[in-house]
Amino acid sequence: MTHISVEDVSFGYTASPVVRNMTFTVEAGEYVGVIGPNGSGKSTLLQLVLGLYEPDEGTISLFGQPSRAFVDRDRVGYVAQDVTENTKEMPITVAEVVLMGRFPHAGFGRISSDDRKRTREALRTVGIDHLADRKITKLSGGQRQRAYIARALAGEADVLVLDEPTVGVDAESVEAFFDLLERLNDNGMTILLVEHDIEAVLEHTDRVLCLNRELYFDGPPETFVESDALARAYGIDTRRGEVTT
């Protein structure tokens, strides 16, 4: 089943488009990494997919519905770069944040014991159930990202969309973080990951989208390494591992 479908999409905040004539689909259970230089439209593409913006041209669908009008919102989990930037002082526990994943299911009704059970399960899956009653602001960057993934899991998401989740996370935690994503993917989670670390994307994902305003490459990491897509997209003569974005 097709989870995400992007058809000939163009979009720009101003007259010059940030995303140009992009077409690709993501099937159920795929693990897709999106790479590209700064300002290449990676984050914008994610936001278009999530339905936060309307494309100027073309259509985007989630689970076969137009993404702007998409109703099964809980099927998509979103993990951004550290969102606690603006909520530094907010007193809220990890369990309370993860429980938010249940809010779209509960609507205006009460939180049920089933909601709390799923919250605990999600915390266990990402391995931070012992931190449930901590303030989220007291967690390390890696632990916080796990909490946001747990929120998506608690919401029973089928697709996980991550926007540079490892920014500000220490190297050791990054490894563990990718292990977690791999485990979730093995259990059938569709993952769309935007990441500045090309090396990590090539190592962990099954499929690479390389873009710089338009799509330069779409295929498995092995083929990507042999192609010249990286040099073309980044517009410089680079070798793997030496790209700074």
């Binding site: 969102v83 938010m100 809010f103 205006f108």
Partner: peptide, 22 residues
């Protein structure tokens, strides 16, 4: 009392709240 959950979601993380369809 009725909109506590929605208000909390919007307060904590506006973007995620929009993605969640609020």
């Amino acid at each position: 009392g009725t909109t506590y959950k929605q208000l909390l979601y919007v307060t904590f993380d506006e973007t995620a709240a929009r993605v969640a369809g609020l």
